[in-house]
């Protein structure tokens, strides 16, 4: 069943790609076999991550960028991630509202993804979904994340080029600098640049970036996605960043803003993170199976103030599996 589907993906057949994404998102055996069958053709696409706080116009900007890439004859894959409700498991995926202009264009494949419990604005399956679009011949593949706040930089692991979008009136620039999101940026875009305070925000961001002693110093661009202003320049800057990553070391003229982390290096660290992540999750699942009762016992003790979280954790780790005590063990001698 998987082989014709893999072939359909490689042929760029939209229905096969759509079905393949569903399977890899599920993470079952069929999806895994499919990813294995596609492994040889993954890695051609430029992976672009777009992130930033809610309400700064990320979807609109991604749609405008897609238009600019279409003008240049590129086929664009878009993965738009929105949060899953932790309470119901449901999700309202609204990014398409801002991308309406592309519906019906087979050169733009948009897939809405619910985060399904993952942290950092990126669904656990985001990499795999991006891999399918990559194998389907879309290049670039743009991953748009939930509006991340401070300290959530999972986007950096998904992309060759990370674009951080900010807008005037969404918290001051200094606040944005704290989070670590800007540190992950290869390019910073001040969107909604027709609004008051855009120039000031850009200047503030540039000044803060100048102060940085180490790491990447991303350029700050201005754009107004709703009007298309500055979008072609942004597209060119994103393409230029990718060329910089590919340029041979020492070729200073072509070097982008990659700060020395070339494409191979970025992809190696991405692969490493994905392997670690998969191992962690497999080990975690194996660890917790058969320990539900032990966990419940410790929860009771911790809530009752008779044990600390650290004690519970170390005893759970040390106790041989499966050791579900009927009665919780005595926590303190």
């Amino acid at each position: 069943m998987v082989d014709p589907l893999a072939q359909g993906v490689r042929d760029g057949e939209p229905r096969a790609i759509a079905r393949a994404i569903t399977l890899v998102e599920e993470g079952g055996p069929e999806g895994l076999a499919l990813l294995a069958a596609l492994a040889g053709v993954v890695g051609r696409a430029h992976r672009v991550g777009v992130t930033g706080p809610p309400g700064v116009g990320k979807s609109t900007l991604v749609a405008a960028l897609a238009r600019a890439w279409r003008t240049a004859g590129r086929r664009v894959g878009i993965v738009a991630v929105d949060p899953t409700s932790p309470f119901t498991g449901g999700a309202l995926l609204g990014d398409r509202v801002r991308m309406g202009a592309h519906f019906g264009d087979p050169g733009v494949f948009i897939r809405s993804l619910a985060s399904r419990g993952a942290q950092g604005g990126v669904s656990l399956a985001t990499h795999d979904v991006a891999d399918v679009l990559d194998a389907g011949g879309f290049d670039p593949v743009v991953v748009e994340t939930v509006g991340v706040g401070q300290g959530e930089v999972a986007i950096a692991g998904v992309a060759d080029t990370v674009v951080v979008v900010v807008a005037p009136g969404h918290g001051d620039g200094v606040q944005a600098m704290k989070g670590g999101v800007l540190e992950a940026a290869d390019l910073v875009v001040v969107n909604q640049a027709d609004r008051d305070g855009a120039e000031g925000l850009a200047a503030e961001l540039r000044a803060a970036i100048e102060l940085r002693e180490t790491g990447v110093r991303p350029p700050v661009l201005l754009a107004t996605a709703t009007k298309g202003t500055g979008v072609e320049a942004l597209r060119d800057a994103i393409d230029g960043h990718r060329r910089g990553l590919e340029a041979p070391p020492g070729d200073g003229a072509l070097r982008g803003t990659g700060g020395g982390a070339d494409l191979v290096g970025r992809r190696a660290s991405r692969a490493e993170a994905r392997i670690r992540d998969a191992v962690d999750r497999a080990r975690s699942a194996a660890f917790w199976s058969g320990r539900a009762a032990a966990l419940a016992g410790w929860v009771e003790l911790v809530v009752g103030g008779r044990a600390t979280v650290a004690e519970a954790a170390s005893r759970l780790v040390e106790d041989p599996p499966p050791a579900p005590p009927r009665r919780p063990p005595e926590p303190r001698p």
Partner: peptide, 18 residues
């Protein structure tokens, strides 16, 4: 969404083709 579905909302004025 509250029933646990993943809802893709596309907004106004969609043609059947879209």
């Amino acid at each position: 969404r509250d029933a646990g579905f993943e809802v893709i909302y596309t907004g106004l004025r969609q043609t059947p083709e879209m």
